[in-house]
Structures are given as structure tokens and as C-alpha cells.
């Protein structure tokens, strides 16, 4: 399956979970989604998101987003996210990072909810009718009552997408130390994964690779996309392209600049990640 065929598996209106810019975010896949012209996505930031999300919002692909933050890191605020929110074109549901993880952890266990400490007293709670507070039913007798605690509903995203280093013949993918992606894949109904390369055999037969493997049980479809994280980095294989993110942040400040970015880096023939990295 190629990158565009993978992007074609995302229907309009789909709920799609994306990951932060330090956690194998799928840059090439996001650009393929823009080229495909997907509409009305409901994005989930696990637990925050960055470049891919801002690009999809700027291209008019997104109806709503639930996330704990949208950020371009050192390059600052995510400009198209900010503009869409200000213009009322984007429904934003705010969360806090551990709440996103906890909701996925509930889904991977198949339980309807999970408690989380903290958060009480944040205005987030008042804006989340789907979050509930109960008194801890397990507090020790004579503790004096109370002990309110937050309950979060399980979240099983329709789709998750990320970029892994390798896929093997069994459909397993390797994410190295970024094992938080295993929780995401376990919880999601389908996972769409781009990889740098395919490798022969079964990585689960290798004791050293196995801890970084996400079993093919959880992987719906795989496409090879060389340099597919770019401009995001990939483990120890290539670094985060801070200069390109800074350029994106600068151009995306205006609609016209964003259109220029898309013309140069998204809609140009082939995905730019290959040619740009090859030129270095």
C-alpha cells in the first residue's frame, strides 16, 4: 500500500488520533491527507499535537479537536489552529495530558472509565460534562469523608496514525522507546502506520527488538514513507528539522503564507520529505 492509499482509508468525518512532535508524528501522512482533501476530521491530540494538526486545520480538513495543547515548540503558537479558533471555524475541546492517556488506558483495558488524581479546581472540569467527580469509594473508614476524585470515560479513537521505523512481514511495527504509542494503538479501533522501511521476518522473534514492537494485531494498514516523520524527527535516525518548523510557523501566520507553504511543500509532485532529505 502506498502513502496515498493509506490516506484514502480516512473517511470524511473520521475521529483521528495524532501524537506530539516528539513522539513519531506522521508528517508525510498528514500532507497526504491534505492532498486527499479529507473534510470534517475530529482530531484527538494524544496528549498534545503540533505540526500535522496545524497543517490539517489550515487546509480546512478539521471540524473539531480535543487536545491538551497545540504547539510548535520553540517556534511558538500553532498559527492556523489559533486563527481557526478565533474565526469560529473550529470546535476546541480542552483537556489535560494525563487525562488523554488515562482515557486510552481505560479503553485498552476494556473498562468504561478510569479515575485520575489532580485536575479538581481546574476550569477544565466545568467545561467537560463528560468528566465526572465522585467521592473515593475506597477511602479508609474514619478518613473523614469526601476525597473527591475525577472519573474519565474510556476513549477508543476510530483511527490513530503515527510513523514507525520498521514494519516486518507479520505486520508488526517498531517504535523504539516511544512505547506510549503502544497504548494508543491498543486503544484505537484502527491504526494506520507509515514506516521508513520493511524488514524481513518477525521482529517479535528478536529479544532486543521485541520491547519496542507494536503487534500487528493492532495495526490495520502500513505504507512505506521514507523520511515520513519529516519535519519531525525519528528516534536516532534523523533529527527534528527546527529550521523547517520555523519556516512553517512564519508562513502559516497568514492565509496567503499558508497557501504558499502548501504549494511548495504539500501539493508539489511527490512528498517533499524524500527530496529535501536526500539533498542534505
Amino acid at each position: 500500500m502506498d502513502l496515498d492509499a493509506l490516506a484514502a482509508l480516512v473517511p470524511d468525518g473520521a475521529q483521528l488520533a495524532l501524537v506530539p512532535d516528539n513522539s513519531l508524528s506522521p508528517g508525510a501522512f498528514a500532507r497526504a491527507l491534505v492532498r486527499r482533501g479529507v473534510r470534517d476530521l475530529r482530531l484527538i491530540g494524544v496528549p498534545v499535537c503540533g505540526y500535522a494538526t496545524d497543517l490539517l486545520i489550515g487546509a480546512g480538513c478539521v471540524a473539531e479537536i480535543e487536545t491538551s495543547a497545540v504547539t510548535l515548540g520553540e517556534a511558538g503558537m500553532a498559527p492556523r489552529f489559533t486563527a481557526a479558533l478565533a474565526a469560529g471555524r473550529l470546535r476546541v475541546v480542552d483537556a489535560t495530558c494525563p487525562a488523554m492517556h488515562t482515557r486510552l488506558q481505560a479503553a485498552e483495558k476494556g473498562v468504561p472509565f478510569m479515575p485520575l488524581r489532580g485536575v479538581l479546581g481546574s476550569d477544565l472540569v466545568a467545561h467537560r460534562p463528560d468528566w465526572k467527580i465522585i467521592d473515593n469509594p475506597f477511602q479508609s473508614p474514619g478518613a473523614g469523608g469526601g476525597d473527591p476524585i475525577l472519573l474519565l470515560p474510556a476513549l477508543a479513537p476510530e483511527l490513530a496514525a503515527f510513523h514507525a521505523a520498521m514494519a516486518d512481514e507479520e505486520g508488526n511495527v517498531w517504535v523504539g522507546r516511544r512505547r506510549e504509542l503502544a497504548t494508543l494503538a491498543h486503544a484505537s479501533q484502527q491504526s494506520l502506520v507509515t514506516v521508513e522501511r520493511r524488514v524481513p521476518g518477525n521482529m517479535l522473534d528478536d529479544e532486543r527488538l521485541a520491547p519496542g514492537v507494536i503487534s500487528g494485531v493492532y495495526v490495520t494498514a502500513i505504507a512505506v514513507a521514507e523520511h515520513g516523520a519529516w519535519p519531525i524527527g525519528l528516534l536516532d535516525e534523523y533529527g527534528y528539522d527546527a529550521a523547517h518548523i520555523a519556516l512553517y510557523a512564519k508562513l502559516a501566520r497568514t492565509e496567503a503564507g499558508f497557501a504558499e507553504y502548501c504549494a511548495r511543500f504539500v501539493n508539489a509532485p511527490g512528498d517533499p520529505s524524500v527530496t529535501i532529505l536526500a539533498a542534505e
Binding site: S68, V70, L85, A86, P98, G118, V119
Partner: peptide, 25 residues
């Protein structure tokens, strides 16, 4: 979050990250 009506319709900040949890735990 930001300023103006929720979720920051005047000036939007990046979002709460893990602050709501970490500050208490």
C-alpha cells in the same frame, strides 16, 4: 487556555498541557 470567552476566543494560549494534574500531584 487564553483570554476572552472559553476556550480563549480573544487571545488563545497553547492549552493546559499536564498542568492541571502536575500542580497537584
Amino acid at each position: 487556555i487564553g483570554t476572552g470567552a472559553w476556550p480563549g476566543t480573544a487571545v488563545r494560549f497553547p492549552g493546559s498541557f499536564g498542568s492541571a494534574f502536575m500542580y497537584l500531584t
